[in-house]
Amino acid sequence: MTIINIRKIGGNIINAFKYLEGYYTLLCYSVKNIPLLRSAPIRSVLYKQLYFTGIEALSKVAAIGILIGIVIITQIVNLVGSNVVLTGKILIWTVVRELGPLFAAIIIIARSGAAISSELGSMKVNRETDSLRIIGINPVDYLIVPRVAGITVSVFILAFYFQVMAIAGGLAFTSIFLDLSFSQHLKGIFSALKFFEVLVSLFKSLVFGLLISIVSCYQGFSVEASITEIPQAATRAVMQSLFLVFIFDGIITVISFV
């Protein structure tokens, strides 16, 4: 029993390293081949990805952002009363430093991570990647490079959008229903906000975007011939994206703020 478990753990560790190696190779290839976006058909894939991952998610991100903003501001006001400076600081610590990039990433993983890996997986099963190669188009160039760029840009913009909606929406709501001054709280936030914090937040969302896109595309492309592999690849894409996003969130937070 012990031997079996050790073997299983060993196998999992080897698999994890194989995946990481694959992710790293795909990341390097995608970054190196960004100039391919000059080609009109590849740019068209990028625009579609920006639409599906970015623009279509705007309303959901706004709704979740406002709700999170309301919850956080209500809790802060309960805790510190009408202390404008402290409210601003706590809001920045929670929304800008952590929740903005993290929630945007989680929303994209839920909406697009599984969708992308399933789409690419079914293209592999239906031999559409072979069809692309037959017409002289490298499937990685055409299918993955624009998706990586599109998802990364989408997460980057949606994270910023989430933060704006959480802070502005949350403050607007509480100023109406809890009778707090919107402008005073906004001033408190701006006085507590540092450029470095915004920079770290944007950097996090950039890293999360790259992680989600690389993991989803890699898992989709790892499907070989069977249709049953597609849901398995989608599950792996979601779980591994989440896991890596949390790991990198921890690493960046520790390096930046400790």
Binding site: D130, S131, L132, I135
Partner: peptide, 16 residues
Amino acid sequence: LSRIGVVLKDGGLISN
């Protein structure tokens, strides 16, 4: 391959 034309049995079209 870009210099060769291939017509596949299923058309070889891209579904999306």
